[in-house]
Design a binder for these strands. Structure first.
Length: 652
DNA sequence: TTTCGTGGCGCC
DNA sequence: AAAAGGCGCCACGAAA
């Protein structure tokens, strides 16, 4: 039954029952599970963010209730403070679809933090990870409840202003309470049968963490950022001139130069757009220097201007090319570097500064296929690690940045899950240089050297070991090694074999993981959360096998086998960081520091925090504790450590 | 004019 | 028979 709470009187008779906040409170206060939803509208009509961003939007409707009774509150004319204790009551589960949205808006408007959340969208992503099913509320309504809902009503709220709600809008509001609750009941059964209860708990708690980070945002110093940009831009423009000049001087009679036929100007101009890889390839072909690479999408060998490939071709194949061309290639590589500094990390980045908060608010995607998170609008997980960019994320007045990352997170995870004695031994002996250790295993001649000696005397072999262990952890083989390092297939194979001869239990663990996952049809990413990744085309594998379509069969099989290894490594690491962020958030709340300590960014194995300077030492300690405590849940043999650094800006 | 796929590259 | 994992954003250029 719908209960409409508003000062509007005309709609009361036919759209539900008149109710007031006291009745809403009385009904909701003793419930164990309630659903919560809000509708928002533009607040200012002049900012790009308006409608969804909490700072530039306002809540027009708040819906709360259960399957039997739904209270639809017109927040434009009704004070909801009476029910705020219900929203923060830790004994009441609040259900919503993408409830991070409600978290942010309610924090902004009522300065309270909803908790004990259950997000039907997040749970759906856990239950069907890898199957790429759509997970909007509309899609779940169809899948679980077999009903079609017209979601166009939602858009009406964005520009509703002060117009009274109509019957359709009120019904829509009520449905968004009823449906998630019904879906949850069905999801709970699936959670039980697939044994992912821990994963669901972790992710539902993590919703609050992301809501908090996204809402608070990160401090951003646009002066510092623009200073870097302007320097880069000057260099970029200069570099373009250098490239033009090269063509102009050496290839004036080619198609790369055209005559400019202005009224007053008949000069010659280089017509290559240097930012176009296609056009640069044309020039490279003409110069007979264009390297090739197997395209990731078409899997065919094609021309490329990929910096690494161009660089290595410069070093190896074309020993006979002239110095002029070599210099040109160096200049081109420098140009590309500067290009990205001026585009992706250039002045346009400032559009992400929120007009109200003055800070940068990213959006996280909470569950990727591995269990990691991603960041967008802007992506705060791929800011160049160079200090000249990261210094722009600095501490506000009276604040400090506390930055902590796990040391060797993925390696430690792998050590703990494989329990390979030689890897364990590395840690037991207190070593830290895994690459030198691996080099020793690969090259018999390094047997009697210490790790320090290897690092100093054989940096080349250490570098190879680094690239080898990286490749193998992601499912590469001898072929991969030979391909990457430009060495013979035999040598690649030899390195592959000696690596796994050195770590036989690791090989056993890899083989077992692949075998079990491939026979089940899904990966169990870790034993703590039991997070699953389903192979979407698993059944197709048998079809291709029967048809003897070996190309497709091995392509898919290989992809899945590599995922088996990579996902368990990335995924358990991802979950650890999530739990650490939850612990740290809880610490902030327990100490009532939410107004002076903010988590500002998560970058896979790293947690960034802004804190009032007076708290910085205790915050650094608490952050380390949270991260180490989370590490212990997964890493029971070799501990996973984190070290916090206090500084003026990100990256000290 | 907008949309979309691709190549390329930043991060872990 | 393929051949290192996970992301998001930029510019380009073809298609719509």
């Amino acid at each position: 039954m719908i209960h409409f709470i508003s000062n509007q009187v005309s709609l009361l008779e036919d759209s539900g029952y008149k109710a007031n906040m006291q009745q809403c409170f009385d009904y909701c206060q003793n419930k164990k599970v309630l659903a919560l939803d809000i509708e928002t509208t533009k607040k200012f009509n002049k900012y790009q963010f308006e409608g969804l961003d909490p700072y530039t939007s306002k809540i027009v409707m708040l819906q709360i209730g259960d399957i039997e009774n739904q209270f639809i509150i017109d927040t434009r004319d009704t004070d909801i403070s009476l029910i705020l204790p219900i929203l923060t009551n830790p004994k009441i589960i609040l259900v919503g679809h993408n409830i991070k949205f409600e978290y942010k808006h309610i924090l902004h408007n009522y300065n309270i933090r909803i908790n004990n959340l259950y997000d039907t969208q997040i749970v759906e992503q856990i239950l069907y990870n890898g199957l790429y099913l759509k997970n909007g509320l509309k899609d779940l309504n169809e899948r679980y409840l077999n009903i079609t809902v017209d979601k166009s009503t939602r858009l009406e709220f964005l520009s509703i202003g002060s117009t009274p709600f109509n019957k359709k809008q009120i019904n829509y509001g009520a449905e968004d309470i009823i449906h998630p609750l019904k879906i949850r009941k069905l999801q709970l059964k699936e959670i039980e049968t697939t044994n992912v209860d821990n994963c669901v708990k972790l992710e539902n708690q993590f919703v609050e963490v992301l809501g908090e980070i996204e809402y608070k945002g990160i401090n951003f110093n646009s002066d510092k950022w623009l200073n870097t940009y302007n320097k880069n831009l000057d260099l970029f423009i200069e570099q373009k001139k250098v490239l033009d000049q090269f063509v102009f001087t050496n290839y004036s009679k080619t198609k790369f130069i055209e005559t400019q036929m202005d009224l007053f100007d008949t000069s010659l101009k280089c017509n290559i757009s240097w930012t176009s890889s296609k056009q640069v390839i044309e020039l490279f072909k003409y110069l007979e220097i264009c390297p090739k690479e197997i395209s990731k999408s078409t899997r065919k060998l094609s021309y490329t201007v990929n910096a690494k490939v161009v660089q290595s071709s410069l070093n190896t194949i074309n020993k006979d090319i002239s110095n002029t061309i070599k210099t040109f290639i160096q200049n081109y590589l420098r140009f590309k570097e500067l290009e990205q500094c001026c585009t992706t990390f250039g002045n346009k980045f400032l559009k992400h500064i929120n007009p109200i908060s003055g800070r940068v608010h990213t959006n996280y995607k909470q569950i990727l296929s591995t269990g990691r998170i991603s960041s967008s609008g802007p992506n705060l997980q791929n800011i160049p690690s160079d200090i000249k960019f990261r210094q722009a994320f600095d501490a506000p007045d009276k604040y400090k940045i506390v930055n902590s990352d796990y040391s060797g997170q993925e390696n430690i995870c792998l050590a703990n899950s494989s329990l390979d004695p030689d890897i364990l031994n590395f840690y037991y002996e207190g070593h830290t240089d895994m690459h030198s250790y691996n080099a020793q295993k690969i090259y018999v001649e390094l047997k009697d050297l210490t790790l320090t000696e290897i690092k100093k005397q054989h940096p080349d072999k250490r570098q190879i070991a680094k690239s080898v262990s990286f490749a193998l952890a992601y499912g590469g083989n001898g072929y991969t090694i030979s391909n990457n390092l430009g060495i013979s297939a035999e040598e690649g194979e030899r390195i592959y074999n000696s690596y796994f001869e050195a770590f036989p239990k690791l090989k056993e663990f890899f083989d077992k993981t692949i075998k079990e996952s491939m026979s089940r049809g899904y990966i169990i990413i870790d034993e703590i959360t039991n997070r699953r990744y389903y192979f979407k085309d698993w059944k197709l594998l048998n079809v291709y096998k029967k048809k003897e379509n070996w190309k497709k069969y091995y392509t898919i099989k290989g992809k899945y086998e590599r995922a088996c290894l990579n996902y368990i490594i990335q995924g358990s690491a991802g979950s650890i960081t999530k739990l650490a962020a939850i612990y740290f958030k809880n610490w902030i709340l327990e100490n009532n520091l939410q107004e002076s300590v903010y988590t500002t960014n998560l970058v896979h194995d790293e947690i960034n925090v802004e804190t009032l300077e007076i708290h910085s030492k205790v915050v650094a300690k608490a952050l380390e504790n949270a991260m180490q405590k989370a590490g212990k849940v997964w890493c029971k043999t070799i501990p996973l450590n984190a070290e916090a650094v206090i500084s003026e800006f990100w990256g000290h």
